[in-house]
Each structure stands twice: as structure tokens, then as C-alpha cells.
Simulated assay, not measured.
Amino acid sequence: MREHFLLDPTVHFLNHGSFGACPKPVFEALQQWQLAMERNPVEFLGRRSAALLRTARERLAAHLGAQADDLVFVPNATTGVNTVAQSLALQPGDEILTTDHEYGACDATWHHVCQRTGAVYRRVEIPLPFEASEFADRLMAAVTPRTRLIFVSHLTSTTALVFPLAALCAAARERGIATLVDGAHAPGQIDLHLDTLGADFYTGNCHKWLCAPKGAAFLHVRPERQREVHAPVVSWGYVAGEDGAGSTGGHTGFDAYVGSTLLERRLQWQGTRDIAAWLSVPAALDFLAANHWPAHRSASHQRALALQARVLARNGLQPIAHGTDFGQMVPIPVRSSDPAGLRAWLFDQHRIEVPVTQHAGQVFVRVSVQAYTLDSELQALENALAAAGV
């Protein structure tokens, strides 16, 4: 599969998880959409964009087990988290309950929102080694009468754990508590059926494991919660009004780009921007289907676990979870007192692109194995870690 990607052949690229990698045919689709936009930007953005985005959302919704009317495109999962966080009418003392494994940028989002509103961002420790069967009960045991929302990752960034969310979402719903899931790493890496999962809000990236271009992500909102969500940038959809009526500010043709559903009108048009990455999502789904991606995904998962096992057998450390708790990313515990130095050494001396993360005093080399990953790249990392004595 390596020939289908644009990756630098001189780099051992084991960090698909950070920004993804776009296959050549999908990148070509992106460029074709950009060219179509530049040929007549007024027609493309002003008259065609809503219908084009609708078609792309329908394809994505079918893949995610969701309804197109409950989805809207956003540039990245961080934007999705911010959109929800800044939409909630939080009061002083309200609690946002989360885990101690969340992505730093989203932690920063909640700290900012809580500082502004007087709400409280409260972390629950999810100890290592991880036991999936205890996850939902541990979080729900921390719920108080002030808990307004539970915010959790589907796959954690630092520790690469897959959190089991169905039971948590169901338990929270029974208590009248909303759930927001940061699914940045989930689409394409694990099977998703958002309608069944039951999260009130779910945001995920398409540019990571779905292999879409950078800047393609989505926010999914259950129908009964959609009136709570507001755009971070107010634009023409608000002028048109929630029922599509109202002042047009001297312009016509709003529905051609603001759309007709509530989520579309509020979130779809936030000023002029390049929508080509969103329109390329169907091309990414076509690429995965044409190349039998479930088989590649399963094989990548097994190869990642095998590498983890070999390194741990050498360095005498233990995994932080069972193999079923990981996807195509695995955290390999290492003995290092200088994570930043180890990451830099791996790249500068061995041309290995891989993140070195930390959690609860432990250091991990977080390896991503994608269909294009070569066995020689995994061996290069294994050899380098042995040479470093970690």
C-alpha cells in the first residue's frame, strides 16, 4: 500500500495518529474540488456548496451509522469540542466530569470555558493497567448532583486506549447527564455506529484514520440536543432565522450555502473557507472500500501488538491494557527519563517519526501501524529502542 501514499521514503513514518496521511487518489480529488471552486467561486460556493456538502455528509453518515441531518462538517475534532463546550449554558458550580487521559488541547478548552462561566472541570483517575469492565462504573460513581456533562475520548491520545462508551452513555442518559465524546482517532480505526452508541455529542476526524485530507472532521448531535448548539462564528444562517425566514440583508439564495436544517444553518457557513477537504471525504471512503480496508485494519492491529510484545519482552515492562483495548495505535512502555530527547534522537539519528508520550509517570512510544507501514519500519524502531537501552 505504500505506493498509494505521498510519504517521504527516507522517513520511517510511524505516526499516522497525529495528522493522518492522505492517499494519492484522495489528494487528487481534493485538488479537483479546489480547481472546480476556483473556476467560478460564486457558483461553487454561493449556489452549489450546500447540495455538494449534503451529498458528502450522506456518504459519511452511512459509514458512521448516523443520519445526515445529525451531522455537520467541522475542520477538526478540537473545533467540534469547542463548539459544544462554548454552546452550553453553564452556571457557576456546574461540573464537567472527565478522565485523566484527555487530549491537552481539549483540557485547555474546558479550563477556559470553566474559568469564564464558573463551572468546574473535574478529572476522574482511570488507573493503569486499564480494566475496561470498570470504566463506566468508575466515572458514574464520581457523578454528583452538579454534573452537567461527561466528556471522554473514544481513543485516548497519550495512552492509545479504546474506552468502552456504550454503557457509559446509557448510564449517563438515565441520570439526565449529557455526554460529549472526543472521537478524534476513532473513525476508520474502529467500527462506529453513532446512533447506537448514544452519545449526545460526538466529534471525530476524517483526516486521520479515514485518510481524508487535512481539515476534514464532523460533529454529530442527537436531534433533541441540536437547539443547544451554536456556531463559534455567527454568519448568514442566523440572519435567515431558524425557520429559514427573516431578513436576507439584501441578498438572495441563502439556502444555496447555509442549507435548510438547523445544524446546517447554524454551523455550515461561517464565512468564506475552503470546503474541498469535506467534499473529498467520499473519495476517501471509496479508497478504503476499493482496498479492502477492514482486512488491512485487522492486520495492522495484530502487527502493532506483536511489536509491542517483542519490545516489552526485551525491556521487562508490562503492557498497560489487554490487546483488545487498543486499535492500530499501541503505547509501548519504555524506560526513559527524557521523553523529548528520545523522540528527537529517534528522528535525528534514525529518521523514525514516532511520538513519545507520558502519563502518570510512565513514558510510552506511541506507535501507529497503518496499511502502508512496512515491516522494515517496525524493525527499525525495535532496533533503535534496543540500541537506546530503553
Rank of each mutant, 00 (worst) to 15 (best):
T248D: 02
E28N: 07
T357S: 04
P355F: 13
L197R: 05
R366Y: 00
Q67L: 13
L180K: 06
G241V: 14
C206I: 02
W269M: 12
P129W: 05
E125S: 13
H12I: 08
Q115W: 10
W278Y: 15
V334G: 07
L288Q: 15
R48I: 03
D137T: 07
G361P: 11
L305I: 13
L90W: 05
V84R: 07
L285H: 10
T272R: 05
A216G: 12
H220Y: 15
S337D: 15
H63C: 11
S337K: 02
G46Q: 09
I150R: 01
M37I: 06
S280N: 09
Q268D: 01
H220D: 11
P41E: 12
A68K: 11
A77T: 15
K214H: 07
I177T: 13
G327P: 07
A36R: 15
E38K: 07
R57V: 04
A167V: 10
A388E: 15
Q318H: 12
G204M: 08
A178N: 00
P319S: 07
L263P: 02
D274K: 04
D8V: 01
L312W: 07
V363S: 07
V152E: 12
T159P: 06
H12L: 08
R39W: 03
H111C: 13
L88K: 05
L149C: 11
T196Y: 03
S247W: 09
R366F: 00
R39D: 06
V124L: 11
S300C: 15
E264Q: 14
G215M: 06
S247L: 14
Y103R: 08
H350I: 02
T147E: 06
P25T: 09
I275H: 06
Q379M: 12
R335H: 11
P333S: 12
Q31S: 14
T196S: 08
A170F: 01
D70A: 10
D182Q: 09
F135Q: 09
R48H: 10
P41K: 14
L128A: 13
I96P: 03
G250Y: 06
A212V: 14
L88E: 13
L267D: 08
A178V: 06
L194F: 04
M329A: 04
H112F: 13
P164H: 10
W269N: 08
A276V: 10
V81L: 08
H322V: 00
H359I: 01
R173K: 14
R48K: 14
Q189F: 00
V113L: 01
Q318M: 08
S235G: 02
V181N: 07
L307W: 05
R123F: 01
T79Y: 10
A309C: 04
T55N: 11
C22A: 04
D200G: 10
L30V: 04
R366A: 14
M1S: 09
E125V: 15
F151V: 12
V143L: 05
F364P: 01
H4I: 00
G241E: 03
A295I: 04
S280Q: 08
S337G: 15
C206V: 12
A380G: 06
L7H: 05
E134K: 00
A29V: 03
P9E: 14
Y238K: 11
Q115N: 13
A309M: 02
Q31E: 15
V152K: 01
A77S: 15
P232C: 00
S247M: 05
L346H: 11
L219A: 12
H12F: 03
A142D: 05
A141F: 01
H193V: 01
A309K: 14
L71R: 05
G237K: 02
L97D: 07
T261F: 09
I190D: 04
L53G: 08
